[in-house]
């Protein structure tokens, strides 16, 4: 099972906005260069722990967080 997920966004603005929301909710994340598999997006993406995915999904469902694509490392 993979350990991390990478969230991809349209623009660096959306990356930083999402980073601030994720950090505010006490969830670990790190900015990483966008993996080749997601290269159609912005040059930076957000890496999160796989175990936090349910929390991220619920943030996405209530509209606090949006991402364009998700990739499992």
């Amino acid at each position: 099972m993979s350990k991390h997920v990478v969230l991809a966004f349209d623009s660096i603005h959306d990356v930083i906005k999402a980073e601030k929301i994720i950090v505010r909710h006490g969830i670990w994340c790190d900015l990483v260069p966008t993996p080749r598999e997601l290269s159609s997006d912005c040059g930076m993406s957000i890496e999160c722990r796989n175990e936090d995915l349910p929390d991220l999904e619920s943030l996405r469902e209530n509209g606090a967080l949006t991402w364009r694509d998700i990739y499992r490392t």
């Binding site: 623009s11 660096i12 603005h13 990356v15 930083i16 906005k17 601030k20 900015l31 990483v32 260069p33 966008t34 912005c42 040059g43 930076m44």
Partner: peptide, 21 residues
Amino acid sequence: NPGRSGHRLSAQAARIVFDTR
């Protein structure tokens, strides 16, 4: 350069741009 490169200084520059906006 803000957001152009994947490194932490680039991210820091992007945060400055975001905060000003």
